[in-house]
Protein backbone atom coordinates (compact mmCIF):
# COMPACT_ATOMS: atom_id res chain seq x y z
CA UNK A 1 0.00 0.00 0.00
CA UNK A 2 3.02 2.27 -0.01
CA UNK A 3 3.05 4.75 -2.79
CA UNK A 4 6.45 6.32 -2.50
CA UNK A 5 8.00 8.06 -5.45
CA UNK A 6 10.10 5.71 -7.45
CA UNK A 7 13.35 5.97 -9.25
CA UNK A 8 12.80 6.38 -12.94
CA UNK A 9 13.47 3.51 -15.31
CA UNK A 10 16.61 5.19 -16.64
CA UNK A 11 18.43 4.43 -13.41
CA UNK A 12 17.51 0.82 -13.26
CA UNK A 13 18.60 0.23 -16.80
CA UNK A 14 22.26 0.58 -15.94
CA UNK A 15 24.17 -2.38 -17.32
CA UNK A 16 25.08 -4.71 -14.52
CA UNK A 17 28.75 -5.03 -15.42
CA UNK A 18 30.03 -2.36 -13.05
CA UNK A 19 28.34 -3.85 -10.04
CA UNK A 20 31.46 -3.85 -7.91
CA UNK A 21 31.93 -0.13 -8.36
CA UNK A 22 28.31 0.36 -7.35
CA UNK A 23 28.89 -1.63 -4.19
CA UNK A 24 31.81 0.53 -3.21
CA UNK A 25 29.78 3.65 -3.88
CA UNK A 26 27.00 2.21 -1.74
CA UNK A 27 29.32 1.59 1.20
CA UNK A 28 30.69 5.10 1.03
CA UNK A 29 27.23 6.61 0.84
CA UNK A 30 26.05 4.45 3.69
CA UNK A 31 28.86 5.54 5.98
CA UNK A 32 28.41 9.17 5.00
CA UNK A 33 24.69 9.15 5.76
CA UNK A 34 25.11 7.69 9.28
CA UNK A 35 21.42 7.02 10.03
CA UNK A 36 21.07 4.16 7.55
CA UNK A 37 24.01 2.57 9.30
CA UNK A 38 22.17 2.80 12.62
CA UNK A 39 19.10 1.34 10.92
CA UNK A 40 21.12 -1.59 9.63
CA UNK A 41 22.50 -2.15 13.10
CA UNK A 42 19.00 -2.18 14.61
CA UNK A 43 17.77 -4.59 11.96
CA UNK A 44 20.75 -6.86 12.57
CA UNK A 45 19.86 -6.94 16.26
CA UNK A 46 16.27 -7.81 15.41
CA UNK A 47 17.43 -10.50 13.02
CA UNK A 48 19.73 -11.86 15.71
CA UNK A 49 16.82 -12.04 18.16
CA UNK A 50 14.68 -13.67 15.51
CA UNK A 51 17.22 -16.35 14.68
CA UNK A 52 18.62 -17.07 18.12
CA UNK A 53 15.49 -16.22 20.16
CA UNK A 54 14.88 -19.78 21.33
CA UNK A 55 18.44 -20.01 22.69
CA UNK A 56 18.71 -16.63 24.36
CA UNK A 57 15.15 -16.33 25.64
CA UNK A 58 15.14 -17.05 29.38
CA UNK A 59 11.84 -18.96 29.45
CA UNK A 60 9.09 -20.57 27.47
CA UNK A 61 7.11 -17.65 25.99
CA UNK A 62 3.84 -19.54 26.37
CA UNK A 63 4.33 -20.75 29.93
CA UNK A 64 1.55 -19.12 31.94
CA UNK A 65 1.24 -18.44 35.60
CA UNK A 66 -1.90 -16.56 36.37
CA UNK A 67 -0.88 -16.06 39.98
CA UNK A 68 2.02 -13.92 38.77
CA UNK A 69 0.22 -11.97 36.09
CA UNK A 70 1.01 -8.34 35.28
CA UNK A 71 4.19 -8.56 37.33
CA UNK A 72 6.41 -5.48 37.26
CA UNK A 73 9.68 -5.60 35.33
CA UNK A 74 12.48 -7.30 37.28
CA UNK A 75 10.16 -9.64 39.17
CA UNK A 76 11.43 -13.08 40.01
CA UNK A 77 9.17 -15.70 38.47
CA UNK A 78 8.84 -19.44 38.81
CA UNK A 79 11.34 -20.06 36.03
CA UNK A 80 13.63 -17.11 36.62
CA UNK A 81 13.87 -13.35 36.46
CA UNK A 82 11.23 -11.64 34.36
CA UNK A 83 13.28 -8.70 33.15
CA UNK A 84 10.44 -6.93 31.39
CA UNK A 85 7.64 -8.13 33.63
CA UNK A 86 4.80 -10.47 32.74
CA UNK A 87 1.62 -10.12 30.72
CA UNK A 88 -2.06 -10.71 31.45
CA UNK A 89 -1.55 -14.47 31.67
CA UNK A 90 1.72 -14.30 33.57
CA UNK A 91 3.87 -15.02 30.54
CA UNK A 92 7.35 -13.51 30.40
CA UNK A 93 7.29 -10.34 28.28
CA UNK A 94 10.99 -10.50 27.43
CA UNK A 95 10.77 -14.03 26.09
CA UNK A 96 7.67 -13.17 24.11
CA UNK A 97 9.41 -10.13 22.69
CA UNK A 98 12.29 -12.29 21.46
CA UNK A 99 9.99 -14.89 19.95
CA UNK A 100 7.85 -12.07 18.62
CA UNK A 101 10.81 -10.76 16.63
CA UNK A 102 10.88 -14.05 14.84
CA UNK A 103 7.19 -14.13 13.93
CA UNK A 104 6.88 -10.43 13.13
CA UNK A 105 9.90 -10.52 10.86
CA UNK A 106 8.80 -13.79 9.33
CA UNK A 107 5.37 -12.37 8.58
CA UNK A 108 6.84 -9.14 7.23
CA UNK A 109 9.42 -10.72 4.98
CA UNK A 110 7.41 -13.71 3.80
CA UNK A 111 4.41 -11.54 2.96
CA UNK A 112 6.68 -9.35 0.85
CA UNK A 113 8.11 -12.42 -0.83
CA UNK A 114 4.66 -13.78 -1.60
CA UNK A 115 3.42 -10.43 -2.88
CA UNK A 116 6.70 -9.67 -4.61
CA UNK A 117 6.87 -12.98 -6.42
CA UNK A 118 3.32 -12.78 -7.68
CA UNK A 119 3.71 -9.11 -8.54
CA UNK A 120 7.05 -9.46 -10.32
CA UNK A 121 5.90 -12.37 -12.44
CA UNK A 122 2.63 -10.67 -13.26
CA UNK A 123 4.42 -7.43 -14.07
CA UNK A 124 7.06 -9.08 -16.24
CA UNK A 125 4.49 -11.05 -18.20
CA UNK A 126 2.24 -8.06 -18.49
CA UNK A 127 4.94 -5.68 -19.62
CA UNK A 128 6.84 -8.03 -21.89
CA UNK A 129 3.96 -9.60 -23.77
CA UNK A 130 1.36 -6.86 -23.59
CA UNK A 131 -1.92 -7.56 -25.35
CA UNK A 132 -4.83 -9.33 -23.75
CA UNK A 133 -2.83 -10.90 -20.94
CA UNK A 134 -1.62 -7.44 -19.96
CA UNK A 135 -5.23 -6.27 -19.91
CA UNK A 136 -6.37 -9.17 -17.76
CA UNK A 137 -3.61 -8.74 -15.21
CA UNK A 138 -4.01 -5.01 -14.93
CA UNK A 139 -7.81 -5.28 -14.59
CA UNK A 140 -7.32 -7.82 -11.81
CA UNK A 141 -5.12 -5.28 -10.13
CA UNK A 142 -7.80 -2.64 -10.58
CA UNK A 143 -10.38 -4.91 -9.00
CA UNK A 144 -8.20 -5.38 -5.98
CA UNK A 145 -7.46 -1.68 -5.67
CA UNK A 146 -11.12 -0.80 -6.11
CA UNK A 147 -11.74 -1.17 -2.45
CA UNK A 148 -9.68 -0.96 0.69
CA UNK A 149 -7.48 -3.98 1.00
CA UNK A 150 -7.92 -4.28 4.74
CA UNK A 151 -11.56 -5.22 4.12
CA UNK A 152 -10.50 -7.97 1.77
CA UNK A 153 -7.98 -9.10 4.37
CA UNK A 154 -10.64 -9.13 7.07
CA UNK A 155 -12.96 -11.14 4.87
CA UNK A 156 -10.38 -13.77 4.04
CA UNK A 157 -9.07 -14.02 7.58
CA UNK A 158 -12.56 -14.46 8.99
CA UNK A 159 -12.99 -17.28 6.51
CA UNK A 160 -9.56 -18.87 6.77
CA UNK A 161 -9.28 -18.34 10.51
CA UNK A 162 -6.25 -17.03 12.34
CA UNK A 163 -2.83 -18.48 11.56
CA UNK A 164 0.66 -17.32 10.66
CA UNK A 165 0.45 -18.87 7.21
CA UNK A 166 -2.92 -17.26 6.50
CA UNK A 167 -1.70 -13.84 7.55
CA UNK A 168 1.33 -14.16 5.32
CA UNK A 169 -0.74 -15.15 2.31
CA UNK A 170 -3.40 -12.50 2.83
CA UNK A 171 -0.98 -9.65 3.49
CA UNK A 172 1.21 -10.90 0.64
CA UNK A 173 -1.64 -10.86 -1.82
CA UNK A 174 -2.37 -7.35 -0.65
CA UNK A 175 0.98 -6.20 -2.01
CA UNK A 176 1.22 -7.73 -5.44
CA UNK A 177 -0.42 -4.94 -7.44
CA UNK A 178 2.18 -2.41 -6.37
CA UNK A 179 4.99 -4.63 -7.59
CA UNK A 180 3.18 -5.65 -10.75
CA UNK A 181 2.62 -2.05 -11.78
CA UNK A 182 6.20 -0.99 -11.21
CA UNK A 183 7.69 -4.03 -12.86
CA UNK A 184 5.36 -3.64 -15.80
CA UNK A 185 6.33 -0.02 -16.32
CA UNK A 186 10.02 -0.85 -16.09
CA UNK A 187 9.70 -3.85 -18.37
CA UNK A 188 7.88 -1.79 -20.98
CA UNK A 189 10.79 0.61 -21.22
CA UNK A 190 13.50 -2.05 -20.92
CA UNK A 191 11.96 -4.16 -23.66
CA UNK A 192 13.09 -1.65 -26.25
CA UNK A 193 16.60 -1.19 -24.85
CA UNK A 194 19.59 -2.30 -26.92
CA UNK A 195 20.96 -4.92 -24.60
CA UNK A 196 17.56 -6.62 -24.47
CA UNK A 197 17.23 -6.45 -28.23
CA UNK A 198 20.71 -7.96 -28.40
CA UNK A 199 19.81 -10.85 -26.15
CA UNK A 200 16.75 -11.51 -28.23
CA UNK A 201 18.73 -11.32 -31.46
CA UNK A 202 21.18 -13.87 -30.10
CA UNK A 203 18.27 -16.27 -29.93
CA UNK A 204 17.90 -16.50 -26.14
CA UNK A 205 14.60 -18.15 -25.22
CA UNK A 206 11.97 -15.70 -23.99
CA UNK A 207 12.04 -17.02 -20.43
CA UNK A 208 15.77 -16.40 -20.30
CA UNK A 209 15.43 -12.91 -21.72
CA UNK A 210 12.87 -12.05 -19.10
CA UNK A 211 14.62 -13.52 -16.09
CA UNK A 212 18.29 -13.14 -17.01
CA UNK A 213 18.28 -9.86 -18.85
CA UNK A 214 15.33 -7.82 -17.71
CA UNK A 215 14.76 -8.92 -14.09
CA UNK A 216 18.23 -8.08 -12.73
CA UNK A 217 17.80 -4.54 -13.95
CA UNK A 218 14.64 -3.91 -12.00
CA UNK A 219 15.72 -5.46 -8.73
CA UNK A 220 16.98 -2.14 -7.39
CA UNK A 221 13.67 -0.23 -7.36
CA UNK A 222 11.99 -3.34 -6.01
CA UNK A 223 14.21 -3.41 -2.96
CA UNK A 224 13.16 0.15 -2.20
CA UNK A 225 9.49 -0.76 -2.32
CA UNK A 226 10.13 -3.93 -0.36
CA UNK A 227 11.82 -2.13 2.50
CA UNK A 228 8.90 0.27 2.83
CA UNK A 229 6.45 -2.58 2.56
CA UNK A 230 7.91 -4.67 5.37
CA UNK A 231 7.08 -1.73 7.58
CA UNK A 232 3.50 -1.48 6.43
CA UNK A 233 2.98 -5.25 6.71
CA UNK A 234 4.12 -5.20 10.33
CA UNK A 235 1.63 -2.40 11.00
CA UNK A 236 -1.18 -4.23 9.19
CA UNK A 237 -0.52 -7.31 11.28
CA UNK A 238 -0.93 -5.20 14.41
CA UNK A 239 -4.23 -3.78 13.17
CA UNK A 240 -5.55 -7.23 12.33
CA UNK A 241 -4.58 -8.42 15.81
CA UNK A 242 -6.57 -5.52 17.24
CA UNK A 243 -9.61 -6.79 15.35
CA UNK A 244 -8.98 -10.29 16.69
CA UNK A 245 -7.93 -11.60 13.30
CA UNK A 246 -4.22 -11.92 13.85
CA UNK A 247 -2.19 -14.95 14.74
CA UNK A 248 -3.40 -17.58 17.26
CA UNK A 249 -2.85 -16.61 20.90
CA UNK A 250 0.02 -19.00 21.49
CA UNK A 251 2.08 -17.36 18.74
CA UNK A 252 3.68 -14.22 20.10
CA UNK A 253 3.92 -11.25 17.73
CA UNK A 254 4.64 -7.64 18.59
CA UNK A 255 1.42 -6.49 17.03
CA UNK A 256 -0.67 -8.93 19.03
CA UNK A 257 1.20 -8.05 22.24
CA UNK A 258 0.46 -4.38 21.64
CA UNK A 259 -3.18 -5.05 20.80
CA UNK A 260 -3.61 -7.23 23.90
CA UNK A 261 -2.16 -4.59 26.17
CA UNK A 262 -4.92 -2.06 25.63
CA UNK A 263 -7.11 -3.24 28.50
CA UNK A 264 -4.27 -2.84 30.95
CA UNK A 265 -3.28 0.66 29.84
CA UNK A 266 -5.55 2.35 32.36
CA UNK A 267 -4.09 0.18 35.07
CA UNK A 268 -0.67 1.74 34.34
CA UNK A 269 0.92 -1.52 33.24
CA UNK A 270 3.06 0.49 30.84
CA UNK A 271 5.57 -2.25 30.07
CA UNK A 272 2.98 -4.34 28.28
CA UNK A 273 2.62 -1.70 25.60
CA UNK A 274 5.98 0.04 25.78
CA UNK A 275 8.32 -2.79 24.84
CA UNK A 276 6.43 -4.30 21.91
CA UNK A 277 5.54 -0.75 20.83
CA UNK A 278 9.19 0.27 20.85
CA UNK A 279 10.13 -2.89 19.01
CA UNK A 280 7.65 -2.07 16.26
CA UNK A 281 8.62 1.59 16.04
CA UNK A 282 12.35 0.85 15.94
CA UNK A 283 12.01 -1.86 13.34
CA UNK A 284 9.59 0.00 11.12
CA UNK A 285 11.66 3.15 11.45
CA UNK A 286 14.79 1.27 10.46
CA UNK A 287 13.13 -0.22 7.40
CA UNK A 288 11.87 3.23 6.41
CA UNK A 289 15.25 4.88 6.88
CA UNK A 290 16.87 2.13 4.89
CA UNK A 291 14.26 2.48 2.17
CA UNK A 292 14.82 6.24 2.05
CA UNK A 293 18.52 5.83 1.73
CA UNK A 294 18.19 3.14 -0.92
CA UNK A 295 15.89 5.34 -2.96
CA UNK A 296 18.16 8.35 -2.72
CA UNK A 297 21.15 6.24 -3.49
CA UNK A 298 19.55 4.66 -6.53
CA UNK A 299 18.09 7.90 -7.82
CA UNK A 300 20.74 10.62 -7.96
CA UNK A 301 18.12 13.20 -8.88
CA UNK A 302 16.95 13.13 -5.30
CA UNK A 303 20.44 13.20 -3.85
CA UNK A 304 19.73 16.48 -2.06
CA UNK A 305 17.41 14.59 0.20
CA UNK A 306 20.10 12.44 1.81
Amino acid sequence: MTTETLPGPAVAAKPISNRRREMRRAMRSLVAARWPLVAIFVLLCVAFAAIFGPWISPMDPNRQNIMLRLADPMTAGRQGMMYLGSDGLGRDVFSRLLYGARVSLLVGICAIMVGGTIGVIAGLVSGYFGGWIDDVIMRLGDIQLAFPFILLAIMFLVILGPGVMNIIIVLGIGQWVTYARIVRAQTLSLREKEFVEAARALGDPTVLVIFRTILPNIVAPLTVIASFNVASVILSEASLSFLGLGVPPNVPTWGAMLADSRDQLMANKWWLAFFPGMAIVMTVLSFNILGDWLRDFLDPRLKTNA
Binding site: G88, Q264, M266
Partner: peptide, 8 residues
Protein backbone atom coordinates in the same frame (compact mmCIF):
# COMPACT_ATOMS: atom_id res chain seq x y z
CA UNK B 1 -16.13 -3.48 32.28
CA UNK B 2 -12.84 -5.19 31.54
CA UNK B 3 -11.61 -6.77 34.82
CA UNK B 4 -8.24 -5.04 34.51
CA UNK B 5 -9.96 -1.66 34.39
CA UNK B 6 -12.06 -2.10 37.52
CA UNK B 7 -9.38 -0.55 39.68
CA UNK B 8 -9.02 2.45 37.39
Amino acid sequence: VSPDQIEA
